[in-house]
Design a binder for these strands. Sequence first.
DNA 1: CAGGCCATGTAAGGCGTTACATGATTAC
DNA 2: GTAATCATGTAACGCCTTACATGGCCTG
Lengths: 181, 181
Amino acid sequence: MRVLKYAILGLLDKGRLSGYDITSKFKEEIGHFWSAKHSQIYPELKKLTEEGFVEYQIVIQGTKLEKKVYSITELGKTELHEWMNQYSPIPETQKDEFMLKAYFVSSMSPEEAKQLFEDQLEKRKQTVVFLEERFQEFEGKEEPISFSSPDFGHYLVLSRALEREKSYISWLERMIKRIGG
Amino acid sequence: MRVLKYAILGLLDKGRLSGYDITSKFKEEIGHFWSAKHSQIYPELKKLTEEGFVEYQIVIQGTKLEKKVYSITELGKTELHEWMNQYSPIPETQKDEFMLKAYFVSSMSPEEAKQLFEDQLEKRKQTVVFLEERFQEFEGKEEPISFSSPDFGHYLVLSRALEREKSYISWLERMIKRIGG
DNA sequence: CAGGCCATGTAAGGCGTTACATGATTAC
DNA sequence: GTAATCATGTAACGCCTTACATGGCCTG
């Protein structure tokens, strides 16, 4: 599948980036849905260069520090576009360790179960606070953001991340009531 | 982390199972949130046996076929319980290839984007149809299912899977309107 | 001048999938 | 008898994380 390959191509299609920059991007909004460590990114960039999907220029930062600034090639753009237009099946499994514990809830007392669920609720609520702050950026506008905006992708991931958490919270709250405990 | 270890211990805590049975379980309801292939399960069972968390008896199926039926040991129960009561942080990244594409939507025409989103919507709707069928089992009852029911874990995963899909669908529908196309 | 950040790489090991390999049982 | 399912294992390979390793830059 090599999804990281396409993640990098997609990021470079938005603009020129170093390996370090790509690492940083995965700590920002897209990190809610895909990420990788620098130890995986640098070898992948090397491979993509060999394959001709990206190329780089060395830029000197300060007086000595060498930085490789990557850009996507025409070949890379074609490759990215092909992947973007290829509809893949929804994976049957979306791993969630908390839900695995939930499935085994009968091995716990109601008190323990309640605490487990309350902890998860608390953490999800904190995430929502953080996400809602970021989301402000898009809410204040007179004109709602449109497809043609360069920030539309950013809007999509933030709004989805928010909705995902809110749905989780609403479910947790209903289930906590059922547990009693 | 060794989550598969705990997944297997949790399943065996509900009852005696062969490696094949465990593989089957991961194709059923818990498979929405955790799964593994038999090629990963058999070595893990071997390791868990060596560690003393599980033990097995050989059962003859038919006249020749040897089956290893595993059960959890007291040591295994302690280990499981420890994991169940250990609250872990929510992983920052919950990988979703479709959302990665969504983030790169500006590399597409509105028509292409709309088709990508419509395809995703269609697939998620099909999942909901399937999940709702399974969920019938719990809806018809006079008494709503309670924590003490042995099926409560089953109920939790099904209701969460359903809600997760419904939330995704509602978001997709709103975003499709925004795309226009 | 020190601490945090920028910047790039490699190595070891665990996790996970696909493929290879084999054979028995059951239901039609 | 034959196809689907039951049943268990190993091998190869790719993905991913943690740790090892190094050094420059910038701000206070």
